[in-house]
Design a protein around this nucleic acid. Structure first.
Lengths: 245, 245
DNA sequence: ACCCCGGGCTGACATATGTCAATGCAGTAT
DNA sequence: ATACTGCATTGACATATGTCAGCCCGGGGT
């Protein structure tokens, strides 16, 4: 199950090419930049080696040195609440960018841990800051990514009803995981039930039960982390609280 | 009860002076800027006349034209959820800055409505964007304020327990409202119970009951919108989930 | 002074969710 | 093969919160 173990040589090759040719170009950070900026950006990016499950990218209180783009795998961002419980802020998948939690106090406000074997791109912050003065479009890009981050946090705050949050979560993960060619509505959750329950702020038992209920109603198929959305339309309505039962 | 009606002539005079001399300097947007930036910033700021309760500063979908700093009063930011319920994102008090919800899609994602008679400063965005290229410190300032915004949203997400959220809310509002000279632990909530309950995502009845309970336990004194914190220490512990009963 | 109105409070009840304990089950080591 | 280990599920029960209905009470108009 090691992502880096079953990569083809072609895929490995991809890891060596520039941002301008990167397969994640449309998903990731450089989206919307012009060739000259892309070239400069590429020159400051470092690609990580394979990162093993359980390793941390950064931790609470550490200095803000870089932002990270996920090439492969899944990274969990979390902190520990005053009561000792784990607060999962979010999950970062292929093409997504993390690390912006630390722009202001210059210290990370959360931990970032590898959930699945991952590769990331590392972009030193001071280089970005310097370059963003030079290229106005890059400055806008920073604001854009921060803003996207911002709205992502609000995604599950809407509803106080657990079923809604779960439906929204499943559809969200599906849309972020989906790639043309894979089975349309089937995917594998990269995180444990406990991580999900900490993220959605419900007890793991409640999560289990409600997932089972959605299964019974024919909305989804479940086998451990394997999920299949059988009725995306109803799920979508349910996520918006327009449909109960 | 009109804030602009009982202002002294001195206060009125304050409304005409530059950012560099503004009494909100330490609270507000320009904090941390040097005299040359302050002067430029001041030249692009417009002061609003008195804004009446119920008026909107901006609404969902409107173009992002400016950010706003509250000089006096209270402004509520909210949106309408898919189920039709009002989602209150937050409240903005004296010295606080709003409008950054719209940096990315260039459209406001929420509505901003006046809860108490208010004065604001209006800072056109395109001027800031232009100036932030010129002055690096201003660029940092933008990131800083956005980041503060960001963490504010997470403030009440911690706990799923209503009492904790209420305690945290009261202490938060108190700290933001406090000014030396006023009664140490007494203040007036600028918003209705319904607004609070929409913000904390609990039914207004539950809010009432839990406030009554905190009163019975001697933690606070309540008379309509007037609040007095009798035991801030225990309240703080309660906000962190370290103390129940 | 009186009435009206809206926000706020309270009670009774339904429901959702949390908690504690036990069991199942797959992957891993022995 | 067997036992072990950690995650996931399930059941029984306690509790928190939502819902519906009614009441109170202060402020503003007449």
């Amino acid at each position: 199950m090691h992502a880096y173990a079953d990569m083809s040589t072609e895929e490995l090759e991809l890891f060596r090419v520039a941002c301008g040719f990167c397969s994640l170009r449309e998903l990731c950070w450089p989206m919307g930049l012009e060739p000259p900026e892309l070239a400069r950006l590429h020159s400051m990016i470092r690609r990580s080696g394979p990162l093993g499950v359980g390793n941390h990218l950064f931790g609470v209180g550490e200095r803000f040195t870089a932002i990270y783009a996920v090439r492969t795998g899944c990274i969990k961002s979390y902190s520990i609440g005053a009561d000792g419980h784990e607060l999962v802020h979010g999950f970062y998948l292929r093409g997504e960018v993390l690390g912006f939690d630390a722009v202001h106090p210059d210290r990370h406000r959360c931990n970032a841990v590898i959930l699945e074997p991952s590769f990331v791109c590392v972009i030193p912050y001071k280089d970005i800051a310097r370059l963003s003065v030079e290229f106005h479009s890059l400055h806008n890009q920073i604001l854009r990514v921060m803003s996207r981050e911002f709205s992502r946090q609000l995604k599950f705050a809407d509803s106080s009803v657990a079923t809604q949050r779960i439906a929204a979560f499943l559809m969200d993960i599906h849309s972020r995981l989906y790639q043309p060619g894979s089975a349309e509505y089937e995917f594998r959750l990269p995180m444990s039930r406990e991580d999900i329950s900490n993220h959605l702020r419900i007890a793991p038992e409640t999560l289990s039960r409600l997932i089972a209920k959605m299964h019974r109603k024919g909305l989804i198929d479940v086998d451990r982390r394997r999920i299949r959305l059988l009725n995306p339309v109803r799920l979508g309505l349910m996520a918006q609280g327009k449909h109960h039962g």
